[in-house]
């Protein structure tokens, strides 16, 4: 198909989509309206379970089963990327060379690495109180480690991330979510039910099982993202194809 025909076909389809979408929008309840029955019930449920961050309460208490699916998707992606980006038979792995870094860049990375790690742990631990949680904090933690790459070189990053340990941590954290759900089933009669003492509202121990699920997801996301990025970075830095030298890339 020529690009002109393709564009014409798209133009016609886009006009139809745009027309029907615009008509559907005029029939929707207007944005900003006062009627949010599910939202009101979610807020009431969060307050009843003494969880200050209602979004966390929805994700890890009311809709915890959906979050189990969500973290399984993440786990599946890490597995899939590991499979897709494995070393092929005709490829070679060369150890990365050590590289020179500007002293100011080194200083910036060295200072920011511990700060970012602490921020990540804080975001995971306070997920039930303030915006954040396991998913967001996990990504911060994974990014923090890569300051090692910015501040030094790839060899330092490889020493900073024990991939074998992180692979196991990823699987264990994914499994622990289900295990905790089953423990809730044994103790409270329903899968993923919030059975722990709810604590005092707006303190770090409040929310019952929400902080535990947050921690499990935080570990899983952090190790999963590091492993995922490691495979991509290996492709860029260390793995060379047949008859290909590093300088050519």
């Amino acid at each position: 198909m020529s690009s002109r025909t393709r564009l014409l076909l798209f133009g016609a389809a886009a006009l139809v989509i745009a027309a029907f979408f615009a008509v559907a929008c005029t029939e929707m309840p207007r944005s900003g309206g006062a009627s949010h029955p599910y939202g009101d019930r979610a807020v009431a449920a969060a307050l009843a379970h003494r969880t200050a961050n209602v979004v966390s309460s929805v994700n890890f208490d009311v809709r915890a089963f959906d979050t189990l699916g969500e973290e399984s998707i993440l786990f599946g992606t890490v597995l899939g990327a590991t499979l897709l980006l494995r070393l092929a038979r005709d490829e070679h792995r060369r150890p990365a060379a050590s590289e020179r870094v500007l002293p100011t860049t080194r200083l910036l990375g060295t200072v920011l690495l511990p700060v970012a790690l602490v921020v990540g742990v804080y975001v995971v631990a306070h997920g039930q109180l303030s915006p954040g949680g396991g998913f967001q904090g996990g990504v911060v933690l994974a990014t923090a480690l890569h300051f090692g790459y910015v501040a030094a070189d790839y060899r330092v990053l490889e020493r900073l991330r024990p991939l074998a340990v992180l692979d196991v941590a990823d699987s264990l954290a994914a499994a622990s979510f289900t295990a905790m759900g089953l423990a809730c089933l044994a103790a409270g009669g329903a899968f993923l039910r919030n059975v722990l003492p709810l604590g005092t509202f707006n303190t770090i121990t409040s929310g019952g099982t929400v902080p535990l699920f947050n921690a499990a997801v935080g570990v899983e996301v952090a190790s999963g993202v590091i492993v995922l990025l490691a495979h991509f970075l290996d492709q860029a830095v260390e793995i060379t194809g047949p008859g290909e030298t590093k300088e050519e890339r």
């Binding site: 949010h36 939202g39 200050a52 209602v54 959906d66 979050t67």
Partner: peptide, 27 residues
């Protein structure tokens, strides 16, 4: 919809359910 610095019932809140869905969407 976060009560860490907000008294419950003092202000209208946006819908937390769709915010949780947006988080799932991002992941």
């Amino acid at each position: 919809p976060v009560f860490s610095d907000l008294r419950p019932g003092s202000r209208p809140l946006v819908d937390p359910v769709v915010q949780a869905l947006a988080l799932t969407d991002v992941v």
